[in-house]
Design a protein around this nucleic acid. Structure first.
Length: 161
DNA sequence: GCCAACGTTGGC
DNA sequence: GCCAACGTTGGC
């Protein structure tokens, strides 16, 4: 059964455009250093799961594209790179602490801003919107996924109604 | 730059 | 196991 996720990326580091420009439009989701977010990638994600590509820590935070989970979990090599901001000196190569999945960008969408998401009553209990939420990866319910993709289709192809 | 909220660390 | 101190996230 397909699951759905929202994954935050800082566009300064990897925007939806950057992901689309990568080989196969696929990027390893490096830098997650939170156990809950890691566990989603390591334990719960399956290839083909839907991903809302979210831009965070930027002037216009919001959903910027659609993507899919494109690999099984594998080791995040940045944890062993002392020159990386994601270096983790406590992680041993024989027992890597951080794993990631590859994410394949499918398309850029119009930006659905955080304010627009908050304004939708149907999305009121999205994990992303919960008070104090800081998780960079959150599961998205099928109903929320359907609502958001419907909104995108409506605005993208008004004549199709 | 501010700050609310949360996660992690480490002493006890 | 508790919890205070500290660090980080991320919107504003």
């Amino acid at each position: 059964m397909t699951q759905y996720w929202l994954m935050k990326s800082e566009p300064d580091e990897c925007s939806i455009d950057d992901a689309l420009a990568a080989p196969q439009a696929t990027v390893p989701w490096t830098g997650v250093r939170n156990y809950q977010a890691r566990n989603f990638m390591r334990d719960a994600m399956r290839i083909g799961d839907g991903v809302l590509f979210y831009h965070s820590s930027c002037p216009q935070p919001g959903i910027a594209g659609l993507a899919r989970v494109a690999s099984a979990p594998h080791t995040d090599l940045t944890q062993f790179d002392p020159s990386s901001p994601y270096f983790d000196a406590a992680s041993r190569p024989e027992a890597p602490r951080w794993q990631l999945v590859d994410v394949q960008a499918l398309r850029k969408t119009r930006l659905i801003s955080l304010a627009e998401l908050r304004a939708e009553p149907e999305l009121a209990d999205m994990l992303l919107l919960k008070r104090g939420n800081r998780l960079s990866i959150t599961p998205v319910s099928p109903a929320h996924w359907r609502f958001i993709t419907d909104v995108l289709m409506r605005r993208a192809t008004p004549s199709a109604q």
